[in-house]
């Protein structure tokens, strides 16, 4: 009875419980724009979104995994591996010093890298779904293996001298807006549609909400999980390609602890670690909160030691506010 009452009378509490994180984000932006006049300039805004795009794209894949009550710890290391692979396939000329170096059209290099991401993700999914290994462990294994493979593949060195057609992906603009932002937008729309408008997306929620009930409803839980991790792998590959193109190099040290930033974005965006709840637009907001924080503190020249402390405190505070509202709701 009492719940119905709350619903028929929209209250501040109900609004906060749904859009609390947006309010936090807007508040953060207002504070930062007061403290730094350039914060709200068009150039800085595109700047922030471009910087966020790499973690942002990864975190959308992580969102899928977390909704199914899983997790993906391998994304950072997979970025490293895919970045060196795509770099060795996109060089201007063969490099005899590298173990692997092949010159080929950019489109094929990109396609191979995306496929690699999908395959690695599918391995994560298969281990989890059919091997019955907890996703924490399966992706932890992949995290270590991918990092090692990346170092092995290039003997621990970065791979540079990339074609301009390739680096354009990370540095170019269309209609004055950087390409990484377009790609982030495109991936966001794709992920959002997949999650909220397709059968696959409903199955993802069903498995996370109640796996046994999902089975009763005739859902193939194992197949769906493999797809979830394969999609996360795909997004990780997109991210890796962007990072490589943006920095004009692939490097086995790339992506260190990106998985944690991605998980943080996801959780700040209101995705419940106990599964069954989450959305892509909120995941984007979560990523933006972290991005805006980094940007704002650099703009203001906050001391590096304080930056880390402030970031940690704000992340925990955002989730804490979210958790309180969950309890009320």
């Amino acid at each position: 009875m009492s719940q119905q009452k709350i619903l028929s009378r929209p209250s501040v509490g109900a609004f906060m419980s749904k859009y609390g994180i947006v309010v936090i984000f807007v508040g953060l932006c207002i504070i930062l724009s007061i403290m730094s006049p350039v914060f709200l300039s068009m150039r800085n805004i595109t700047n922030v979104i471009r910087q966020v795009s790499i973690i942002g794209i990864v975190s959308m894949g992580v969102t899928f995994a977390i909704i199914t009550t899983g997790i993906d710890l391998s994304s950072g290391s997979m970025i490293a591996l895919i970045s060196v692979v795509v770099a060795t396939l996109s060089q201007n000329a063969m490099n005899p010093d590298q173990p692997v170096s092949i010159v080929m059209p950019i489109a094929i290099a990109v396609a191979i890298s995306l496929l690699l991401g999908i395959i690695l993700g599918a391995v994560n999914g298969t281990l989890t779904a059919f091997g019955k290994i907890p996703p924490f462990i399966a992706t932890l294994g992949m995290m270590t293996v991918a990092r090692g493979a990346a170092a092995l593949y290039t003997r621990g060195r970065p791979v540079g001298d990339l074609k301009e057609t390739f680096t354009f992906i990370g540095t170019g603009s269309i209609f004055g807006i950087p390409l990484p932002i377009w790609i982030y937008l495109a991936m966001g729309i794709l992920a959002h549609i997949l999650l909220s408008k397709t059968k696959f997306g409903r199955h993802v929620f069903a498995i996370g909400g109640n796996e046994q009930a999902a089975r009763i409803c005739g859902i193939n839980v194992e197949k769906t999980l493999v797809k979830v991790y394969a999609f996360a792998g795909f997004l990780t590959a997109v991210s890796a390609i962007l990072l490589t193109a943006r920095t004009s190099a692939g490097n086995p040290t790339y992506g260190l602890s990106y998985e944690l930033d991605a998980i943080a974005s996801t959780v700040i965006g209101g995705t419940s670690l106990s599964g069954g709840v989450g959305s892509i637009p909120f995941c984007v907001i979560g990523a933006l909160i972290i991005g805006v924080l980094n940007n704002g503190m650099d703009l203001m020249g906050v001391n590096a030691y304080w930056q880390q402390i402030a970031k940690g405190v704000i992340i925990v505070a955002a989730v804490l506010i979210d958790a309180r509202k969950q309890k009320r709701g």
């Binding site: 800085n44 910087q51 790499i54 920095t247 190099a249 490097n251 790339y254 650099d298 703009l299 930056q307």
Partner: peptide, 24 residues
């Protein structure tokens, strides 16, 4: 006037420098 932690990382260094350039 500025210092920040780039963790030896190219992408991180790039991000910091971008922000500094934006800051005016």
């Amino acid at each position: 006037v500025m210092d920040a932690e780039g963790k030896w990382d190219r992408a991180k260094g790039m991000q910091i420098a971008e922000n500094w350039i934006q800051s005016g």
